[in-house]
């Protein structure tokens, strides 16, 4: 039941976002859109309640969303800007030193691994290629492999993804 309510409320909020400025009855929504939105949200909630939420309600905590927002605006955006300047430099000069390395971020949940993989793909010269689902280890294609990082296996996480696992652990675990 709780799964159904959460899925319905989130569906309704997305519907409201997609139908902004439909009228002036309730702030910037018209009553007809709200009624239709409630009906569709209930149908969608019945269908997706077991797919959308697997086993826990950890992400309902608003503090996690706040940390996610801080993470996106702060460290993530900065390293993304640096990554883009780095890749721009490599596009212009053509100096690359690529390779696939394996890292062990020591995350436990699927959501955490997904978030880390997406963050890694969007930041400094790295692209996640594959995942070892038993141990939650990631294979990363790295455009400029540093010699220091190749000493031990799995490779040291700090060269590839910096402080991301710490943030992701705070958000998703």
């Amino acid at each position: 039941m709780k799964k159904f309510i959460v899925a319905t409320v989130i569906g309704f909020l997305v519907y409201l976002l997609l139908t902004t400025s439909s009228g002036n009855d309730f702030f910037i929504w018209s009553y007809s859109e709200i009624v239709v939105g409630i009906i569709f949200a209930i149908i969608v909630g019945i269908i997706v309640r077991n797919v959308f939420i697997k086993d826990n309600f950890r992400m309902l905590n608003p503090v996690r969303w706040l940390v996610l927002l801080v993470y996106l605006i702060g460290p993530f955006f900065i390293s993304m800007a640096r990554a883009n300047l780095d890749v721009a430099y490599r596009v212009i000069t053509g100096r690359i030193n690529p390779g696939i390395v394996k890292i062990d971020p020591k995350l436990k949940t699927d959501l955490g691994v997904t978030m880390l993989a997406n963050s890694i793909t969007l930041t400094p010269g790295t692209l996640s290629v594959d995942v070892d689902e038993d141990k939650n280890q990631l294979y990363i294609h790295w455009i400029n492999v540093k010699e220091d990082a190749l000493k031990k296996k799995p490779r040291d996480c700090k060269y590839v993804c910096g402080g991301f696992p710490k943030w992701v652990r705070r958000i998703a675990e």
């Binding site: 030193n97 969007l122 996640s128 190749l150």
Partner: peptide, 29 residues
């Protein structure tokens, strides 16, 4: 990034190896 993962994983599984690679842990594994 999700699309990029899918393409990269499919490429590696179908045998496209990275050019000029210094190291390839995935191939070894």
């Amino acid at each position: 990034p999700t699309g990029a993962h899918a393409i990269a994983r499919a490429a590696h599984r179908s045998g496209v190896m990275p050019a000029k690679a210094v190291v390839d842990d995935l191939k070894d594994d």
